[in-house]
């Protein structure tokens, strides 16, 4: 995978209409450290993967679990090794360190596959690190639409399961039940199995469930990308409310304007490494340049009449020539 092959479907402004984001810009009143990330490495074990082919294409963060030996025996065996014991590793986060302080809201940006979501999950403590560590005050919570619920069960059961899994007591779940249903705006569908929901309804319910508990540190993963304008406004209000209590916020989003409106500091992650860390304007200016340059390169390649398929056929020729 070369960089030009990476998907760059980054919204520059589409996701939020500017009027959705009215209100004062967040101002950081920075306090004590609440989260320290120390040289974090996350490695996924992937069974049945084709590390060799992918690695040959140049993706730096995928490699074979065992170093390939070039002995004759190894080469004889290698034809079967793809089917027996094919384990590869994806090095999704490669040595990230930073310190987050109380009162900061931190955006994480990067193109698809750069390791943003993995980083977010790792600092929430949901994916154990290969090496390095995450130190945190209080219990961070991930607010996302990916909270895996049980599609064959009714929305009602799912609210219970989600709420209890978040650490609420049965009494608290009961108290907040109506609020969750109202926020998700699904009405009587709450008594139907979740697999019958439209994707928007499902996403709204998941968001409503996962925002039912108010955590110390809040991690938001693309949660704002779902739903219609009314829901977006509501969810932004909910996040603002949570932010007032939470103190520290992490936000992963493809929408640069969302990050701009909500964050005081931005981390730019590229291929599992932290390439920039600083104030919102400074980092986003650079990141915009990067994304625009890539988009331009892609669209001019398309305009030249060379489709992706044709390009991939031409690449080996070019490599042979050079």
């Amino acid at each position: 995978m070369t960089e030009s092959d990476l998907h760059l479907d980054v919204d520059l402004d589409e996701e939020f209409e500017p009027e959705d984001l009215e209100g004062p810009k967040p101002v950081a009143t920075v306090g004590d450290p609440v989260l320290v990330v120390d040289d974090l490495h996350i490695v996924y074990r992937v069974f049945g993967g084709k590390a060799k082919q992918v690695a040959a294409k140049g993706a730096e963060n995928v490699r074979e679990a065992k170093a390939p030996k070039r002995s004759l025996l190894r080469r004889l065996v290698s034809s079967t090794s793809q089917h027996v014991g094919a384990v590869s590793e994806v090095h999704a986060v490669r040595g990230i360190s930073f310190v987050a302080r109380h009162g900061e809201s931190i955006g994480i940006v990067g193109i698809n596959g750069s390791g943003k979501s993995t980083l977010l999950r790792a600092i929430t403590g949901l994916i154990p690190p290969r090496s390095g560590g995450v130190y945190v005050a209080g219990e961070p919570a991930l607010l996302g639409v990916n909270a895996a619920l049980m599609p064959q069960l009714t929305g009602e059961r799912n609210i219970w399961i989600g709420g209890l899994a978040l650490g609420l007591t049965p009494k608290q779940v009961e108290e907040r039940f109506d609020e969750v249903v109202e926020f998700a705006d699904i009405g009587d569908f709450v008594y139907m199995p979740m697999k019958t929901y439209s994707s928007g309804m499902g996403a709204r319910l998941r968001f409503a469930i996962s925002s039912a508990a108010t955590p110390d540190i809040l991690m938001i993963d693309e949660a704002l990308a779902t739903g219609d304008a009314a829901f977006k406004a509501r969810s932004k209000a909910r996040i603002d409310e949570v932010r007032k209590n939470a103190g520290t916020i992490f936000l992963v989003s493809h929408s640069i304007s969302t990050v701009e409106a909500m964050c005081t500091r931005v981390l730019w992650v590229h291929q599992g490494q932290l390439v920039m860390d600083g104030g919102t304007e400074e980092v986003l200016a650079e990141y915009r340049k990067f994304v625009r340059a890539h988009r331009l390169a892609r669209s001019s390649a398309r305009a030249g009449g060379v489709g992706p398929r044709a390009r991939s056929k031409q690449r080996p020729k070019k490599q042979a020539a050079s």
């Binding site: 320290v36 120390d38 930073f98 310190v99 403590g125 995450v134 130190y135 961070p140 730019w268 390439v275």
Partner: peptide, 27 residues
């Protein structure tokens, strides 16, 4: 993209910060 950021603190310093402010290790 820019070159990866070189952190301005060492691993030991970061762990010292974590300890100083009573942060718990995750995971």
């Amino acid at each position: 993209p820019p070159e990866p950021v070189v952190p301005d603190t060492t691993s030991q310093e970061r762990r010292a910060i974590a300890e100083q402010f009573g942060l718990q290790q995750m995971g």
